[in-house]
């Protein structure tokens, strides 16, 4: 059933955010520390577990992937509620600090993003990556290549 996928996603998110809150309390931080990242790892673990124990039921897959396909529209809605007026009107100190920060960090991505690439592995998973990209872009069509992990594989 589709709702099982949505519920799995919800449970992973809730547990992850809860653990993130616990980290925050433990570290005396007034913020959630990595809750969403932990939730993502839980969901990846759930996927791996399910694939090893008899494959991914189509309902669960649909329930999770529907929300992945809604990602870009949600991001557009997120963009539409940013405080753009304040950002634009911040004056020179804001503009200089933001532009310099982003430029420096882009340069750092160019430098360290190339460290230790494994092109052989990248080529092996190219198909899976493309499939994931199509799902998130909301452009996945029935008949496109299926999830390679639908058949159990060693990880």
């Amino acid at each position: 059933m589709t709702v099982f996928g949505v519920a799995l996603l919800a449970v992973c998110t809730l547990i992850g955010v809860f653990i993130g809150d616990l980290f925050g309390v433990a570290l005396h931080v007034k913020a959630n520390v990595g809750g969403v990242g932990i939730a993502m790892m839980l969901l990846i673990a759930a996927r791996v577990w399910l694939t090893r124990h008899g494959g991914l039921p189509p309902g669960i897959k649909l329930g999770v992937e529907f929300w992945a396909t809604m990602y870009i529209p949600i991001v557009v809605a997120m963009a539409a509620q940013q405080n753009v007026v304040a950002a634009v009107r911040g004056g020179p100190i804001v503009v200089i600090a933001a532009v310099a920060t982003v430029a420096l960090c882009f340069a750092a991505v160019a430098l360290i993003g190339r460290l230790g690439r494994d092109r052989k592995h990248e080529a092996e998973v190219e198909g899976e990556l493309e499939r994931g990209g199509k799902v998130i872009a909301g452009a996945f069509q029935p008949g496109d290549p299926e999830h390679p992990t639908a058949t159990p594989k060693e990880v």
Partner: peptide
């Protein structure tokens, strides 16, 4: 729709497409 709750929910959902080894 674009608030933190649904945004994080959708972000977590994209993890379904992650290649574990690569990550």
């Amino acid at each position: 729709m674009g608030g933190a709750m649904l945004r994080d929910f959708a972000i977590v959902a994209t993890a379904f497409e992650v290649d574990v080894v690569e990550a």
